[in-house]
Design a binder for these strands. Sequence first.
DNA 1: GTACGTTGTG
DNA 2: CACAACGTAC
Lengths: 263, 263
Amino acid sequence: MKIASWNVNSLRTRLPHVLRWWQQHQPTVLCLQETKVEDGLFPHQPFTELGLHVARHGQKSYNGVAIISRLPLQDVALGFNGHNLEEQTRLIAATVQAAGGPVRILSAYVPNGESLTSTKFAFKQAFYQHLTAHVVAERAVHPRLVLVGDFNVAADERDVANPARAAKDVLFTPQERQWLADLCQQGGLHDALRLVDQTPNLYTWWDYRTYGRSQNNGMRIDYALVSEALRGAVRGVVHHAAERGMVQPSDHVPVVLEIATLP
Amino acid sequence: MKIASWNVNSLRTRLPHVLRWWQQHQPTVLCLQETKVEDGLFPHQPFTELGLHVARHGQKSYNGVAIISRLPLQDVALGFNGHNLEEQTRLIAATVQAAGGPVRILSAYVPNGESLTSTKFAFKQAFYQHLTAHVVAERAVHPRLVLVGDFNVAADERDVANPARAAKDVLFTPQERQWLADLCQQGGLHDALRLVDQTPNLYTWWDYRTYGRSQNNGMRIDYALVSEALRGAVRGVVHHAAERGMVQPSDHVPVVLEIATLP
DNA sequence: GTACGTTGTG
DNA sequence: CACAACGTAC
């Protein structure tokens, strides 16, 4: 079973890439972030006519998350038990019936934070706190849980090009790393890539502004996190870095988790 | 000799069409309107690398005229003797040495006028007055003169789909038709198409907003006007209406004047 | 409907 | 750098 996560930075603009990528890689589930489209304008048809199931939670201009799936999506939940933080659409969840039993899937788009002194930085912390509590509650109901998305934090030194420099800026401050660590520890989640692969410099995002100037100056800020019950099922995590080289690419690339769902 | 006129509605956006069209039709001269590009950002290279000569007079966002030519462009004149009306780049002229002697070519983009009560309508009248006086002066120096462009006026009933309705709106009011008639009479110019072809409903422009809804609801507002000295040389005028059906077309199509330049 | 410039966001 | 929205023009 392949569960993918991709911050597409506008689904409508990236739709050709997303459809081509789906056909090439045939995932079981694709979680999207930064769809930047209201629910009424969401492009359902290209997916439903492939026989896929769609759940989306979006707004005008900013944010927006979605789940596209080959399997039916059950118990779709928008936001935190139906309400959003700061009216921002950054979380969606659904359950799929896999071979070994139900898997709860969450697609999250964590706030960027802007800068250490911004009110958005405080909002980022609040979002992590809510997300952590939410995962604790969800995991009590759904032991087999996968949380994927754009977490806007690089976990450790292997996940940034220049750790000393990056630590001074948003996305790699000690505080943010702690928020992510707390999410994993209190939420009982494991960074699926690091369960199986310790290679450094495996990035998922390259800033539009710096990509052209400095080569491979990226960060790993998109993750697949799995609950303890799925720990042993992780077969691998791959980043589809080639997507960053396409014409008009997203600044993020797909992160694909493969799990064995039969016990 | 083929002298073409095309309101391209952004040269940068339409560049692929313009280059393909040039290769297909190999005009002697192409006059452009609504290039919407400052001189510093004008795409010279695609033309110069074909060995073509370029004169342009543009500004940011709006207006902008140009002449592309297989023959060298002499005595290039920007605006009305170097200055523009209302700081708008709507007129450019140059001389080419044709087989029968020099031909003065003017490319004009007449203001739209917006509505009868707009200050832009008064500006349209003022522009016609200046243009008429300018042509009178130019023709005294250059007997063989061609004035092409977007005149934003339909000359007579044959040039609109519904004359009664159109007469109430800008582009076909009696006043505007008179301004165009004055330009021709006082300027000593002839509407080249009507010298050789009386077919009605030969349009050059179809509004983006109405094109899809009502078929062939266009107007003839782009012309090739020739001086008395060239009257007998006119071999034909054709509208390349197929350009309106291309993907991402301009709302105007090329108007191509063919003249015999040998005496 | 199509295009451009500006502003706000990342 | 790239995206969405808004205002403006035709």
